[in-house]
Design a protein around this nucleic acid. Structure first.
Length: 336
DNA sequence: TAGGCCATCTGGTCCT
DNA sequence: AGGACCAGATGGCCTA
């Protein structure tokens, strides 16, 4: 909310804080210095036109045409008070920066647990939130249904409401043609995909299920999706070191992924991050002993992708303690 | 160059 | 009173 006239001095940062995350303390100092040097005493004085000053004169001037204003009276801005307000404003700015950094850190953590995580090609904040929402919904559907989903529908659900670049990114991770995902950019496509996800692939339907957008899973669509042979896509994905693989380069060490109840995991992260996230174990069960940590996947430089070390690829998907083939599939497919 | 994204400042509001 | 939270404003950076 801009409270100052355009032609007044606007206290805006002239400093670049791009390196904030690397050294927050240093940044905070810089910010504080900036705050201190940017304080404009003129802004600390109450507005002449709109603020009451507790100097007694206004009370005398009040009459029927100018009734008393409600609310606490403005205190006289003595020099000491001005200084105190300046200090408080500086401290508030510092706290606000710290708060926003915490928010961004949380968002970074979220980026790491949604599909298509890449350190070099970060999703925007809004896209991260959208993808996370879609991801949660898709995972919930898998849990509810208890069957391996159709890949195209799964990705279509992931890409709902995402921008074209992000959709391309997800599709690139999956080696899908984005046209398959964007059959109807007006939102109908996602709806259709969701409907197919819930109604076509599975015989069981839960009428109580609602989609995140409020559309019930029972909603049917007159449109249909062409059968998508993702087995072929998988085959090409795994057997051909295709130079067309557009997955962003993986720029970090291999580390065990997070598993969601033993179903699948879709990311790679620093070992330190993995340790940090290990407390998710109550919800994210650990990698099974049959697949030792760090030995489940190998990085294929030609494909710039991570592939499962075992070439077996059964298309059976079972929950929890059963085969983790789907885990491997999705890990390999999504991983950057 | 326009538009998207982001960090930051800022004042208001709510809560403790 | 003070801190957390929020939203508007602004300028910088990047990309198509």
């Amino acid at each position: 909310m801009l409270t100052l006239p355009i032609d007044e001095v606007v206290m805006m940062p002239g400093t670049n804080f791009d390196d904030v995350s690397e050294d927050e303390d240093k940044e905070s100092q810089i910010g504080d210095e900036h705050d201190q040097c940017s304080i404009d005493l003129n802004n600390m004085t109450p507005s002449v036109t709109s603020e009451r000053v507790e100097d007694g004169k206004e009370d005398e001037e009040e009459d029927e045409e100018h009734p008393k204003r409600r609310g606490p009276r403005k205190k006289v801005m003595t020099k000491e008070r001005v200084e105190r307000v300046k200090v408080r404003r500086t401290e508030a700015n510092s706290r606000e920066r710290k708060r926003m950094h915490g928010l961004n850190n949380a968002l970074d953590n979220l980026r790491k647990v949604v599909p298509c995580y890449s350190k070099t090609q970060k999703l925007s904040k809004i896209e991260t939130l959208r993808l996370a929402k879609n991801y949660i919904w898709a995972l919930s559907e898998i849990l509810r249904i208890g069957k391996r989903p159709d890949l195209l529908s799964f990705v279509q659900n992931l890409c709902k409401d995402l921008s074209q670049p992000t959709t391309n990114l997800v599709a690139g991770c999956l080696q899908l043609n984005t046209r398959n995902l964007l059959m109807d950019q007006g939102g109908d496509g996602a709806h259709m995909a969701r409907s197919q996800f819930s109604s076509t692939l599975y015989t069981y339907q839960n009428p109580d299920l609602g989609s995140p957008s409020g559309q019930g899973a029972m909603e049917s669509s007159s449109k249909s999706i062409k059968p998508y042979n993702y087995c072929g896509a998988y085959e090409s994905f795994y057997q051909n070191a295709s130079p067309e693989c557009v997955s962003p380069p993986y720029d970090g060490p291999l580390s065990p992924p997070i598993n969601f109840n033993g179903i699948f995991s879709l990311k790679q992260e620093d070992p330190s991050d993995y340790v940090k996230n290990y407390h998710y174990g109550m919800h994210y069960s650990a990698v099974p002993a049959s697949r030792p940590l760090g030995q489940s996947y190998m990085f294929n430089p030609a494909m710039r992708c991570v592939l499962p070390t075992d070439s077996t690829f059964p298309y059976d998907f079972h929950l929890r303690n059963e085969t983790l083939s789907m885990t491997d599939e999705l890990n390999a497919v999504f991983h950057n």
